[in-house]
Structure formats: C-alpha cells, structure tokens
Amino acid sequence: MAEIVLYHHIQGLTDGVAAFAEELRGSGHTVHVPDMFEGRTFGSIEEGFAYAGEAGFDTIRERGLVATPAPGTGLVFAGLSFGVTIAQMLAQTRGDARGALLIDACLPVSEFGPAWPESVPVQIHGKEDDEFFEEDLPAARDLADSAPSAKLFVYPGDQHLFADSSLGSFDAGAAELLLERVREFLAAI
C-alpha cells in the first residue's frame, strides 16, 4: 500500500477533500492531508484566492511543506488544483517520491527542474473545458508526451474541482472514474 500526501485546493480542506482522502484510505492506503488554511474553508474559488493573497501564497505552501513527512519515507504526492503546486514540486525534487497525482492542474516541468524524474510515475486529471485546467493543458500534454511513466486523463465537461463531493462542481461519474484510475495507479506502485 502507498503512503500519500494530499494537498487541498484553494477552497481549503473541505468535506469533499476529506471524503476523497477517505476513499483512498478505504483502499488500504495511508493518506496525510495537511490543512494549509488552518481550518478555514471558502465557498468560492475567489474567496479562497483572496484569503491566500492575504496570508501569502508562500506562507500557505510552507504550511503544506512543514506538514509533509520527512524525506526517506517513499511518498506519493497528490494535489487538487492549488495543491498541485506543492505536490508537483515535491514529486520532481524529492528523491524518495514514489508517484504523483495532479488533479485539476499541471505546471510546466521546467518550474521545478529540467525534466520529469524517470522513476516517478504520474497521472494528470482534468476537465477538457475547465477554464483553469485549459491553461494548464499544454503543460499536461508536454509532460505526458515527454515522460514514459506519465498518463493524462481528460474528462468531458467544464467543472473545476470535479472530484470534491462537497462542491456544486462535483461530477460523480467523472470522480468515480478518476478514483478507479487512481486506485489502479497506486496498486502498481
């Protein structure tokens, strides 16, 4: 079984993020979910961004890093949207990374190094008409094309944060397919 660190999206550690983590725990995995917003959740992406702007994006990322288990434990780094910024950085820079799950976002690999580490399998998931994921789609395609262990899954629809069951953007069918693919990915690690 895998040990996973799941970094939440810009609306905080919502009940839907906690439920997603529980789904993975139900498959026998250990899942850590750092609360980078210190108990705050927000009803909209805009409210979450406003809070992050006030608190400082670097401060919030640092909270996530501080709550991450020490190197050497062999972790899968997972992120939902904003959380991808931390998950992807750690997957690309920590030598003990066992995998990465990038959901609703993907940064250019060049943000954190010259190439994706060959030993780190990665899945990228997003909605094809999601206005936020659309701008990340070129980076996601580049990663999928350049790293043999990378798989890109694009789902029909325009919902951002579609795997969070506590939000209006939740897409039960796409979320279940995502979880099925994630379970297969984790079983192979």
Score class of each variant (00 low, 15 high):
D136R: 11
A67H: 05
P69D: 14
L152A: 03
L102Q: 03
S27Q: 15
T93P: 15
E46T: 14
G95V: 12
V84A: 04
P114N: 14
L102Y: 01
A139R: 06
E176R: 15
F20L: 14
G126K: 14
Y7W: 05
P69M: 12
G39N: 02
E184R: 14
F112S: 14
G168V: 10
K151Y: 02
V66Y: 00
S27K: 13
D136I: 05
E176C: 07
G173C: 04
A97F: 09
P71M: 10
I124K: 02
H9Y: 10
V154F: 04
A78H: 09
I45D: 11
G43A: 14
D35E: 07
F170E: 06
E176Y: 08
L75W: 05
R98P: 10
F42K: 01
A91Q: 08
A105V: 03
D142G: 02
L6A: 01
Q88I: 09
P69W: 12
H160N: 09
T68C: 07
G74W: 10
A18M: 11
F20D: 01
E118K: 06
T14A: 12
L177V: 13
A172Y: 04
F170A: 07
E3N: 10
R40P: 00
G12R: 09
R141Y: 03
A115H: 10
E111H: 14
F42S: 04
T93L: 14
A187E: 13
L179W: 04
A163H: 08
S27D: 15
G126P: 02
E184Q: 12
E111Q: 14
D35M: 05
A50M: 10
F153V: 03
S119I: 00
I103H: 01
T14K: 11
